[in-house]
């Protein structure tokens, strides 16, 4: 996997890398109302550069509120509009709870790990 971008804002790190033909965005820390824009910008940047397969690695995300989920829903819609696919991978702990109670899991393709998502979707 090769690192292609790194951003940091308000307790959230974003590392973008490439695995096979997929852009993998690793979110680390807390995605709150103040830090959500950095993901928005990164998603827009990837779409603008022609990326159409995006895996969001949420395994190191410890917090997400409706602001962050809103960004994920918007990005997912943009990727689909562009004819691509976006997967959410590795939700755990409180983040998983927030996804379940907000009943948005059906809006996304969810996978346990990035490897699983990339290999399943490239079959």
């Amino acid at each position: 996997m090769s690192l292609i971008n790194y951003k940091y804002r308000n307790m959230m790190n974003i590392r973008t890398s490439r695995l096979k033909n997929t852009a993998v965005i690793l979110l680390e820390g807390r995605m709150d109302a103040a830090s959500k824009d950095v993901l928005q910008d990164e998603g827009d940047r990837l779409l603008a550069t022609g990326e159409r397969r995006i895996a969001m690695d949420l395994s190191r995300l410890t917090y997400i509120s409706s602001a962050g989920i809103g960004v994920l829903i918007r990005l997912s819609a943009l990727v689909q509009e562009a004819g691509g696919e976006m997967w959410l991978c590795g939700t755990t702990g409180a983040v998983r709870t927030v996804f379940e109670i907000t009943r948005v899991t059906s809006l996304f393709q969810m996978h346990a790990t990035v490897d699983e998502a990339v290999s399943a979707e490239t079959l």
Partner: peptide
């Protein structure tokens, strides 16, 4: 990650008059 299976989680889920995103923000 099993909070919703606890009594506290069940109570939150019972508040279904609130929109789901508000329930998420309650968590």
């Amino acid at each position: 990650g099993n909070f919703l299976e606890t009594p506290a989680g069940e109570y939150l889920r019972s508040l279904n008059t609130f929109p789901p995103e508000v329930l998420g923000d309650m968590v």
